[in-house]
């Protein structure tokens, strides 16, 4: 059965390339943008910036704690540092450095985290961080962004360069459908209603926005009309958009490549419980570590693909 998708794609690309291209563009627009990377320049796609602006780029070696401190220091005097490494080393490994030197000190540092989540794939659980959004959203002052495809990641990268304050930008490794517009305007903290619906709302972030788009078409084939909302900014959360949608649909699903504990779903639940305690079902990793495998295999095994979003939507509908 072919699905009638509301969004389609002709090309796939990794979101980290969206970051790399956005970073280069941000560097061209603003001479105060500088880069740091802990021995993963190729993986983070920061090489083009380094080549064009060698004096504004700092290879730190495998020393992430130092990198975070350096970035915080570089803001003193007006630089806008983009510090890049894998999401695991950009958060858990350096949580205290981010907490004290960046968040508490309110420094204009952009923490750029690639290879987040299960879709890192074959490297396995040591590298597949599934707790980073939770750790980062708990920090006062921190803005947390998790875009869904190449185009949105590029737009988000340009937007955070112009935003004053600490930001955690999360993206990934796998080749992924490009289904959002080129040259889109990225508004930090503003959710994007991608598909109108009336029966159930799917709130998705990161790679799972694409799975939500597929799930919507699958549900529609069965006569269920889902609304799909792209929550690219986990914090500050667009509570108004969430409440407005759930007031209409009466139930919801959250979908993210992250632990259920502490993730986007938790933030949505906090919002609903205070204002409109409607049924909410979670699609996320249920208190476990990942493992080696291909991205598609892993999303299936850990229950994070379109089929699982469909099942969750039906569970939510039954609870209305």
């Amino acid at each position: 059965m072919s699905l009638d998708l509301k969004f389609t794609y002709t090309e796939k690309k990794d979101t980290r390339s969206g970051f790399g291209d956005g970073f280069l563009e941000a560097g061209r627009r603003n001479p105060n943008v500088v880069g740091l990377c802990a021995d993963l320049i190729g993986s983070l796609k920061m090489g083009d910036f380094q080549k064009e602006f060698p004096e504004r780029f700092f290879q730190t070696g495998i020393a992430e704690a130092n990198m975070i401190g350096l970035a915080a220091g570089m803001t003193i005097g007006g630089k806008i540092p983009f510090a890049g490494t894998f999401a695991n080393f950009a958060t858990g490994r350096v949580y205290d450095q981010i907490r004290q030197s960046v968040a508490y000190s309110d420094k204009n540092v952009k923490i750029c985290a690639s290879h987040a989540g299960l879709t890192l794939g074959e490297d396995g659980a040591t590298h597949q961080i599934l707790e980073d959004l939770g750790m980062m959203k708990m920090l006062p002052h921190m803005t947390v962004i998790n875009p869904c495809d190449y185009n949105q990641t590029k737009a988000a990268t340009l937007a955070i360069a112009e935003h004053e304050g600490p930001v955690y930008l999360r993206f990934g490794r796998p080749s992924w459908p490009i289904f959002t517009p080129t040259d889109q305007k990225f508004e930090i903290g503003k959710a994007w209603k991608m598909i109108d619906g009336k029966d159930v709302t799917i709130f998705a972030t990161g790679h799972l926005v694409w799975e939500a788009v597929v799930a919507e078409a699958m549900l529609r084939a069965e006569g269920i009309h889902a609304e799909v909302i792209n929550i690219h900014t986990i914090k500050p959360l667009d509570e108004e958009a969430i409440l407005e949608s759930v007031a209409k649909t009466g139930c919801a699903v959250s979908a993210e490549e992250h632990q259920i504990n502490g993730g986007l779903g938790d933030s949505i639940a906090q919002t609903l419980i205070r204002h409109n305690p409607a049924p909410l079902e979670y699609v996320g990793v249920n208190d476990s570590f990942g493992e080696s495998g291909t991205p598609t295999q892993l999303l299936e095994k850990y229950g994070l693909n379109a089929e699982n979003i469909v099942k969750a939507a039906k569970r939510a509908l039954e609870r209305k």
């Binding site: 500088v34 004096e55 504004r56 700092f58 704690a65 130092n66 990198m67 975070i68 401190g69 350096l70 970035a71 915080a72 220091g73 570089m74 803001t75 003193i76 005097g77 007006g78 630089k79 540092p81 205290d96 450095q97 907490r99 004290q100 030197s101 508490y104 000190s105 420094k107």
Partner: peptide
């Protein structure tokens, strides 16, 4: 100019500030 208390972080911050001075011609 920076919070401190959790030890071991200051030298990194100072180095970042020193490199910004160089970039700024200060």
């Amino acid at each position: 100019r920076i919070a401190s208390g959790s030890l071991g972080q200051g030298l990194s911050v100072a180095l970042g500030a020193a490199q910004t001075k160089k970039l700024n011609g200060d």
